[in-house]
Design a protein around this nucleic acid. Structure first.
Lengths: 152, 152
DNA sequence: CTTTTTAGTTAAGTAGACTGAACTATATAC
DNA sequence: GTATATAGTTCAGTCTACTTAACTAAAAAG
């Protein structure tokens, strides 16, 4: 963080607007579903990263295995999650989103997208093309950055 | 949500990557400060929108006035917030971030930016220019969209 | 085959976020 | 001026998240 470039200034302005909006949106949506934020976050994680074990949940959210187990139990009871035995290790459990869970998350994501779609409608065709290009560049770069970090 | 365009596809890919990252980052940072997520969110709100009254907090987070009052009390005790009497209405309070509160939020934002800055470094000069243009377009569009919604 | 990890659950207890109800004090309406 | 609405606080009680500790069962190590 020596001297912010023009570019990172622009990034920051965008991040401020976008982060504030999306965080507000998510917490509002989570509340409307009746789920707590921690519960909801677990569903989000499963949606993003796919099935995983109980211990992965604990690590991801930095809570004890006991806490993870209890949160997951509630989500299973509510029908959002399925908890099966891992065939390769009978101690472990495999957590997957149920159809109901998937539906819920998709709906939340749709609502988040809607704002972006509204944004699109205000742009000229030319500006749409420009921004699409740019975001593709950024998305790819983000992917590569993540992969690089993962391999360390 | 009829037929997603190429553009909104690209937006979505970006949103997925970006939202997941930033949410994870924020909750991790909030935890590291010792503040709960609701407490932290209040500081964020103050930072984003500037000083406001107690009732505005309740409305913004959809909690009772009692809950807002209690959360704010904790933040005042911890020195992150200042709660003064509103000179124009002696019933009302004016909540503002203290220097300590401001410092905290700024630090969190810096950490969030860092990822973006890393991202920048992986791009060519040409790509940097392209994305800067695009994000400026998007940021302005977002501002205008918000203003339009506010005036309804 | 025994010992030790590892994966997860259960239980008891702590702490924070929240609500409704009762209250104070000020502003607004009539 | 009285009545009413508004801004905020305090209190008692509830619910959820979380922790540690004690447990079961299966895998891995010796």
């Amino acid at each position: 963080m020596t001297k912010p470039t023009q570019f990172s200034q622009t990034l920051r302005a965008w991040m401020d607007a976008f982060m504030h909006r999306s965080m507000r949106g998510w917490s509002h949506f989570a509340k409307s579903t009746g789920l707590s934020m921690p519960q909801f976050s677990i569903l989000m994680q499963l949606h993003h990263k796919g099935p995983c074990g109980m211990s992965a949940i604990g690590e991801r959210f930095d809570i004890s295995a006991a806490a993870a187990s209890q949160l997951v139990e509630k989500l299973v009871q509510a029908g959002y999650l399925e908890r099966a035995e891992d065939p390769t290790d009978r101690r472990a459990k495999l957590l997957t989103l149920s159809a109901k869970g998937n539906e819920l998350i998709k709906q939340g994501i749709e609502e988040r997208y809607r704002w972006m779609d509204d944004l699109v409608l205000t742009l000229s065709a030319e500006d749409q093309r420009k921004t699409a290009d740019a975001l593709e560049i950024l998305t790819k770069a983000a992917q590569q950055l993540d992969e690089k970090k993962q391999s360390l």
